[in-house]
């Protein structure tokens, strides 16, 4: 089974995003490294706008993820409500 992953800078803005990912992806594994946080998941991972908004209590534009994104692995699919990563095999 192939892993998809996303790495974010660790800062105030991404804390809620990481929490949202953990909530929406029970099989995701979170690893904290100096200045960054890495999240691996088997086959598929999703980031939902509404979950992040629940955590922060404010509006969240998914595209603003670009500011704190370090790297990712997997095919990206994005619309205004969610960003997902997956492999097709």
């Amino acid at each position: 089974m192939s892993q998809v992953f996303i790495v974010l800078q660790s800062n105030e803005e991404t804390r809620a995003i990481v929490e949202a990912i953990e909530q929406d992806n029970p099989r995701a594994k979170v690893t904290r490294q100096p200045a960054m946080v890495r999240i691996d998941a088997p086959e598929h991972l999703v980031i939902r706008r509404t979950t992040v908004e629940e955590k922060t209590g404010g509006a969240f534009d998914l595209q603003s993820l670009h500011i704190n994104l370090v790297t990712l692995g997997g095919h990206v699919s994005e619309d205004e409500d969610e960003l997902s990563l997956s492999w097709n095999h």
Partner: peptide, 9 residues
Amino acid sequence: FSAQSDEAR
């Protein structure tokens, strides 16, 4: 990291 945030794209 500022550069890397572009790398994902």
